[in-house]
């Protein structure tokens, strides 16, 4: 039990001070909410803009299907024959490696 003879006078909070405290608190909460909502949505913006660029490139292309790319047809005619031809298999196809069996394993 503390004993003392003097104590600080009580203060009266003015309206302005009260609003100030409430304002600061609200600003902090709003910052957090903003971080969690508005800015998050922005994250996909760059993907969408770049993707839209490629779809624009597609829409304005003269030929829009791979088999209608005359240069590809010309290449097959002059060089590789046809898709899945032996030369196409040799140059355009590959095999895969089961890397889980490559050894030197570090768990």
């Amino acid at each position: 039990m503390a004993t003392y003879d003097y104590v600080e006078k009580a203060i009266k909070i003015t309206r302005r001070e009260f609003l100030g405290v409430v304002g600061v608190g609200a600003a902090i909460l709003w910052t957090g909410a903003y971080a969690a909502t508005d800015l998050v949505q922005d994250r996909t913006k760059y993907i969408k803009l770049r993707a839209a660029g490629l779809y624009r490139d597609d829409a304005k292309a003269a030929a829009r299907q791979s088999h209608n790319n005359a240069a590809v047809g010309e290449m097959y005619k002059k060089f590789a024959g046809k898709p899945l031809s032996p030369l196409a298999e040799e140059l355009f196809h590959t095999r895969y490696v089961d890397r889980s069996k490559l050894g030197g394993m570090r768990s």
């Binding site: 003392y4 003879d5 003097y6 104590v7 600080e8 006078k9």
Partner: peptide
Amino acid sequence: VAREIEPV
């Protein structure tokens, strides 16, 4: 002490 305190 001069301005802000008062006796209990």
